[in-house]
């Protein structure tokens, strides 16, 4: 997870450098303040799973466009390979958008009766960023994958 954190920092600094927000620049410029300015995604993840480190989510298929022209409505599809049996199923999939003002985006909770762990929806992305899918299995195993989306016109703040 440390590696992911560094990537976030780099990307945020890039955003700051491109003049996205004077406040962010101010906070990010202070040594030791990186957590507050850039750690929202990490904080969100920590709230969900504590200090657990999810494994590489190779059985997760996270479908998002590589380029989203309108950040106000970005098609999202996620599915996780699983027998979906009583003792081996996907309990939940969480979607986190690291570059949104509120990274927590949605949680989908499945049951054996779902048949498959598969869902599609539409989300908002404020800017180009990584979107993460975190899968929580019935036995507590955690898997995570991500997809990079380039956003032409950001959602959220934009009217």
């Amino acid at each position: 997870m440390k590696r992911v954190g560094l990537e976030i920092l780099d990307r945020r600094q890039f955003v700051v450098a491109s003049g996205a927000g004077a406040l962010a620049l101010l906070v990010a410029g202070l040594p030791g303040a990186a957590k507050g300015a850039n750690g929202k995604f990490e904080d969100t993840l920590k709230k969900l799973i504590g200090d657990a480190v999810p494994a590489e989510g190779t059985m997760i298929s996270l479908k998002l466009p590589e380029v989203a022209e309108n950040g106000n409505s970005v098609a999202l599809g996620v599915s996780v390979e699983s027998p979906m049996s009583a003792d081996d199923h996907v309990k939940a999939v969480h979607i986190l958008s690291e570059g949104n003002p509120v990274p927590m985006t949605a949680s989908y909770r499945f049951t054996v009766q779902s048949g498959r762990a598969e869902v599609s929806s539409r989300i908002r992305l404020a800017q180009s960023q990584n979107v993460f899918a975190l899968a929580e299995m019935s036995d507590g195993r955690l898997y995570m994958t991500k997809a990079l989306v380039k956003v032409t016109v950001g959602g959220c703040g934009a009217a």
Binding site: V102, T105, Y108, S114, G115, R124, G155
Partner: peptide, 27 residues
């Protein structure tokens, strides 16, 4: 729900797009 029993649920934040669309499965 199917016949009163929840088989799928979802928590949403402000990053879910307006006029929420959702598709999900049921056995």
């Amino acid at each position: 729900k199917f016949d009163g029993e929840i088989f799928f649920e979802s928590d949403w934040q402000g990053s879910v797009a307006a006029n929420p669309f959702i598709a999900f499965t049921f056995k």
